[in-house]
Design a protein around this nucleic acid. Structure first.
Lengths: 337, 337
DNA sequence: TGTGGTTAGTTAAACGATTTACCAATCTTG
DNA sequence: CAAGATTGGTAAATCGTTTAACTAACCACA
């Protein structure tokens, strides 16, 4: 079923049909409009999106680009990503756009696909500042970067207040009397989400006269077995930690398990605080105390900014940081004197 | 950058450029082929997918259609879906196709979008037999249905051996001496994944002379608070259950929490067995004994069948059931005498 | 030498929409 | 009533590809 056939059946030109489809009602009389609409609804005709896209150079497609590392898909390894994708999908669908999803090694892998499909906008998760720099030259469509730190003119980032999150996390442990504190995170450089959480964490510690040194930092990625090993290490460390701050809930759960394996109890012997507030926090045992981030808000702000750029055809520069908060559950206890 | 410009620069016709792009090398001499390829790589030209799709009536797009109920996205509420999506994305990308994702109320919501984008194939998750029936008339592209039970000619289903899973689940409890057994599942009719698991479960019980009656069945959806309530109900029931079989790991975790809340211990007082074998099984406490399904295999088989239909331009009828197996962890113990 | 078969290439018609430019009829208005 | 504006509509170009049909040159062979 094509627009041509509709036009034929209605005895009008394709231009008229196109006009009623696109709501250019001032160009067509009420009478012919009725006639055309009748036939459209009778036949169940829908305009072909591909042809439309070719003609308009737009597509009503938004692409979401997710990093993955080695074997592990971020959104498989870490439920944070699936919650994020779910929220983005919801937003995009509400705008009557389609969502294309793609995992990539390097963000630049995607630029051809984006222009090739006339993609109207892209949302990148977890791109580094340098990747964004490379992207800026090649990328044609409006984009927003979730969980990135980048101050460049013309780039839109949406994230959370990671520094504050790290700070609140440590302060909660300190307020509970802990002084022997470990920090567990994936490897990080001197920028980005994890680095900011680390800065906040150490700054809070310093305020209480506690220094986080190299021996207090445990490097651990999202792979579950690795986080269990980290839990073992923390439990058995000569440092006799009474608490550990972790940069993701998933890892925190693994660490709790690793600690239990060594015969110590959470939170009685060692307190654990996570980050993200995923739904698994209430499933774990003990339920995980954590820093809560509002994933839905993140997706919504990213969507708002993206669609502003698309609709107003403008460039924006933004670095939104959404507030975080402490959610107390059962994995942090007062340190024994 | 268009094919026209490439042709101009190379001093040949667009047809020749098109032929080298598409590997119709017999139609172009080695010499001009070199010339064209040189210019293509110099300019970094990529053919426009939209125009190509319009011309070929294909798109290299696969669509994945996910059900959601009310507020809850399946793949948000249940990590099973995100693992499935991750595997499908991987498969589709390996074939050099794009993946469009869409959550729907009713499967029929998607047919317009599929034809409008010339989508080459679709993967539906969790569609009911009647929905598939409706779809068959309107659907233009090859499709495979994951987790559906449908015997109709020309429909391709890929699932797991749910009956066997239910059977193994109950048998494991029975072999551990349990006789007061509860069954927790979302509401189900007389067909589909949950019903099959139920059949297997009750059949095994019957072999041991145990009847699962209405008072032994607890209806519970994926919402976490509901599963905790179910856990409470099971713990406090006058039936004095010593074990419960659950049709999803996520719900099983909530039920374990609900049981603990009532002061009972898993598995000491009540054993719990899940279904799916998601990664969260190893972070729950106790680690969840469950029926393991191979999600990667499921995605791969679905992909294989789908791409066979796409490439061979043929219709298939299939009802593959992938084997499941019991994975013993710590949430099932022997019943006390 | 005429016929037929390759080979290498071009031209132009699709694909299914949008949109600009144009036209004819009718209405306003001084 | 003539000029101009408005209304309702059409024809045709365009978007960037693929591909069928065609051509011209060359070669082989009876």
């Amino acid at each position: 079923m094509t627009i041509k056939q509709i036009a034929q059946q209605a005895g009008v030109s394709v231009a008229s049909v196109s006009n009623v489809i696109n709501g250019n009602y001032h160009k067509v009389s009420a009478e012919t409009r009725k006639k055309i609409e009748k036939i459209i609804s009778e036949t169940g005709y829908t305009p072909n999106a591909v042809a439309r896209s070719l003609a308009t150079q737009e597509s009503k497609i938004i692409s979401m680009v997710i990093p993955y590392i080695g074997e592990y898909f971020s959104f498989n390894a870490n439920p944070y990503y699936s919650e994020l994708i779910a929220e983005v999908e919801k937003y995009v669908r509400a705008q009557d756009y389609c969502l294309m999803i793609r995992c990539v090694d390097r963000c630049s892998d995607i630029v051809h696909m984006l222009s090739s499909w006339n993609v109207d906008g892209a949302i990148f998760a977890g791109a580094s500042a340098s990747e964004i720099g490379d992207l800026r030259n090649s990328l044609k469509c409006p984009s927003v970067f979730i969980d990135s730190y980048c101050e460049k003119e013309g780039v839109v980032c949406v994230g959370i207040d990671d520094y504050r999150g790290g700070y609140l996390s440590a302060r909660h442990l300190l307020n509970n009397g802990h002084r022997k504190i470990a920090f567990a995170a994936p490897s990080f450089g001197s920028e980005g989400v994890i680095y900011e959480r680390f800065r906040g964490f150490t700054d809070a510690c310093r305020e209480y006269g506690v220094e986080i040194g190299e021996k207090d930092i445990f490097e651990v990625d999202a792979v579950e077995s690795n986080s269990i090993v980290a839990g073992n290490d923390i439990a058995l460390s000569a440092e006799k930690f009474t608490a550990v701050g972790v940069t993701s809930d998933l890892t925190a759960c693994g660490i709790m398990r690793g600690i239990s394996q060594c015969g110590l109890s959470v939170p009685k012997d060692i307190s654990v605080i996570g980050f993200d507030d995923l739904s698994l926090c209430t499933i774990s045992s003990p339920r995980l105390t954590t820093i809560s981030q509002d994933i839905q808000m993140k997706a919504r702000r990213a969507g708002d900014l993206l669609f502003t750029m698309i609709r107003e055809k403008c460039e924006l520069t933004s670095n939104e940081k959404i507030a975080v908060k402490l959610v107390e559950r059962d994995s942090v206890a007062r340190a024994e004197q």
